[in-house]
Simulated assay, not measured.
Amino acid sequence: MRLSWPVYHLKRQARLLSRAVKIPLHQALDRIAAQEGFASWSLLAAKVAKTGPAASLFAQLAPGDLLLVGARPGQGKTLMSLELAVEAMRRGRRSLFFTLEYTQADILDRFRAIGVEPRQFEGRFEFDNSDVISADYMVARLAQAGAGTLVVIDYLQLLDQKRENPDLMIQIRRLRSFARDRGLILVFIAQVDRSYELSKKPVPDIGDIRLPNPLDLSLFSKTCFLNKGEIHFQAA
């Protein structure tokens, strides 16, 4: 299957179309899919999923892993993280999405953008956008989470914004220890510094992560960087 643009670019076109003509995102996605020869976005997304990277990436994750997913804005890091959550749920596991950025409606729209109807995973997916998200808060919320649960944290740098929270290094160390003890998979969405855009590298790397304060990035067991449809996965 060949598309006129990478999927992340088609999704961006749909978001722009949604705003321009004031229609729901799912309708805009269907219009973009029609231009690619599909009756609906869900059919396009299902076709892409069969050959997409999320299933392959998920197969390389193990309980206790901390995965860092990094990219510049608009390159698909949130959607990639949601696709990993979907892969977990398809295998009967639970997923949780902690965010200081999105509303629940935003996330439901993004599920539909990857061709997933959220109702099919009812009872397996939880969303939390509390204003007090921190390592301590997440550990308390995950107290009953079973081994293999996949947790998305959106996003790394926001854990570092409130002065009343411990230093980011302390928070990540606590989450790492908790994940290993409980057999959880933690997926951290991370911002890439804008200076990357001036480099000639096709895909960002660990040195491009934006860090206002010090953090030992070796605490993450695996990394995944995205740019213009390219994906680079690496185990530490």
Rank of each mutant, 00 (worst) to 15 (best):
D109F: 00
S134K: 08
Q35A: 13
V86S: 05
A20G: 06
Q161I: 10
L211S: 07
K22L: 09
K22H: 12
R124S: 14
S218F: 09
G74E: 06
D136C: 02
A147P: 14
K11F: 13
L16D: 10
R31Q: 15
V69M: 10
A85Y: 00
A62T: 11
V7T: 01
D181C: 00
A49S: 10
L142I: 06
L82D: 03
R94N: 15
Q120I: 13
L44G: 08
A62Q: 00
A190P: 04
D128L: 10
G37F: 01
Q157L: 11
M138N: 02
D109S: 13
A14S: 03
P118N: 07
V132E: 15
Q161H: 09
P53Y: 11
F111W: 12
I107C: 08
R19P: 00
W41F: 04
D205Y: 01
L68Q: 09
L211K: 05
N227C: 11
P118V: 02
A62D: 13
F97T: 05
L226K: 07
S221Y: 08
S221F: 07
L17K: 03
M1Y: 06
G92M: 06
F127Q: 10
V116K: 06
V152E: 04
A85V: 04
G37W: 04
R93H: 14
A49L: 03
E101N: 14
H26Q: 14
S130I: 02
L175W: 02
L219E: 11
D136I: 01
L61V: 03
L44V: 09
D205Q: 07
R112S: 13
G76A: 09
A59L: 04
S81Q: 00
L44A: 09
G76M: 02
L84R: 01
L96K: 04
V192P: 08
L158E: 08
